[in-house]
Design a protein around this nucleic acid. Structure first.
Length: 373
DNA sequence: TCTGGGGTCCTAGGACCC
DNA sequence: TCTGGGGTCCTAGGACCC
């Protein structure tokens, strides 16, 4: 989906179309509607506090404002850009709508988060270009939103080429196009090469995918280890054999929060304890609502200098009980030296299992409880 | 005036077992 | 004395992605 959150907001506030708009900020105010129906929007320069940009419109991106950027930094680049708060519930609704629209045409879908999917078109007899155009139209009809599609022999290349003609793009790429269309791109366009690997490659004189493709395998292996070097080499050649993953179970469920201001372990003890308990309750609710139990309970702390530590504990049996989660998380917390102020606290449940007591398609309750003993 | 929240996967060491 | 070779589970940290 193109600039997904921002595009959803533009459906709601069409008068913002064409303007630099950013979504984000934990305490961004809701727009105010006047009696005559006109609306008053917050500007980036008015924002105070902590927060990052979640999404920006293409007009805001043109000013250098991208997702992940701190709001204060963004406000310097685009002080008059409109700032809207995030509304995940609405984005999730639109996410379901677009995925359902695609599923009506192609059934082999891999979910890649709220605004992205892989689709396997290989088994569909219809001409690929037609198919892609139909999918784009179906998404548009269902949501009013545009998307960009990349069609290629595999997931790696499709991900890269879906980006080449954004927004509202449709890019078809075959193997022969790799040297012309893929090799000139930055290695950072490869899904899996992030900031760290990108910098390390740059330090070795490799910035484009072509340079990566021409690098000696032995050289890569020396610096990145055998398996990562092989993957880098394959990726640069456009080789990717991964299958679509059309269903999966969650591995962990978590809740975390960054505080308005850094909190002191002792001085702000009461506040922290309240937040901690709330996080544990929310996690328990999430587990119960999704029908899971967690056997490993963990915490995450981020200190004022951004150092992050985690601790976890595995219980004798899985749970979704808020009090037990709170107690276990509290035990984890006692294993951390709190010698700095905290900026983030999180709680996580992993080693998940289905909550059998809560299964919807309840099997006749007969022998199972006996067997469980 | 830096740096959200929700995830996945990988690595690596130690405990423990056969 | 010179100390195996597998395997699994648990814990911690880090890179990366949306």
């Amino acid at each position: 989906m193109d600039a997904f959150y921002a595009s959803v907001e533009l459906l709601r506030y069409p008068e913002l179309r064409g303007l630099p708009v950013v979504i984000g900020g934990r305490s961004a105010p809701q727009p105010k509607t006047h009696e005559n129906g006109s609306r008053r929007f917050a500007r980036l320069k008015e924002y105070v506090g902590r927060g990052v940009i979640t999404t920006s419109t293409y007009e805001a991106r043109a000013l250098g404002v991208f997702s992940g950027m701190g709001i204060m930094k963004a406000a310097k680049l685009a002080p008059d850009a409109i700032l809207l708060p995030v509304d995940f519930d609405t984005y999730r609704r639109y996410s379901c709508l677009f995925k359902a629209a695609v599923a009506g045409i192609a059934s082999q879908i891999e979910d890649r988060g709220i605004d992205e999917i892989y689709i396997d078109l290989a088994d569909l007899p219809e001409d690929t270009l037609n198919l892609a155009q139909r999918i784009k139209q179906a998404v548009k009809d269902a949501t009013g939103l545009s998307c960009s599609i990349g069609i290629s022999p595999n997931k790696l290349l499709s991900k890269i080429c879906s980006d080449l003609e954004k927004p509202d793009g449709l890019t078809i790429l075959c193997e022969e196009d790799i040297p012309i269309r893929i090799w000139p791109l930055s290695v950072r366009k490869i899904n899996g090469i992030g900031p760290k690997a990108g910098e390390k490659l740059a330090a070795l004189g490799i910035t484009t995918i072509e340079e990566l493709a021409r690098a000696e395998p032995a050289f890569l292996q020396k610096h990145f280890g055998r398996s990562y070097a092989c993957w880098l080499h394959d990726a640069s050649q456009g080789i990717d054999e991964r299958k679509l993953i059309t269903s999966s179970e969650p591995k962990s469920i978590s809740r975390e929060t960054t505080f308005e201001r850094d909190l002191h372990a002792l001085h702000d003890r009461t506040i922290l304890s309240g937040i901690f308990t709330t996080l544990c309750s929310r996690l328990a609710e999430d587990l119960q609502q999704k029908g899971y139990l967690g056997r490993t309970i963990g915490i995450k702390l981020r200190f004022e200098d951004f150092r992050t530590v985690t601790r976890d504990i595995t219980l004798p049996s899985p749970t979704a009980d808020p009090a037990l989660i709170r107690r276990s998380a509290g035990e984890c917390l006692r294993r951390v030296t709190l010698d700095q102020k905290l900026r983030l606290l999180g709680v996580r449940a992993s080693a998940l299992s289905a909550n059998a007591a809560q299964e919807e398609d309840d099997e006749p309750q007969g022998e199972l409880p006996l067997l469980a003993q």
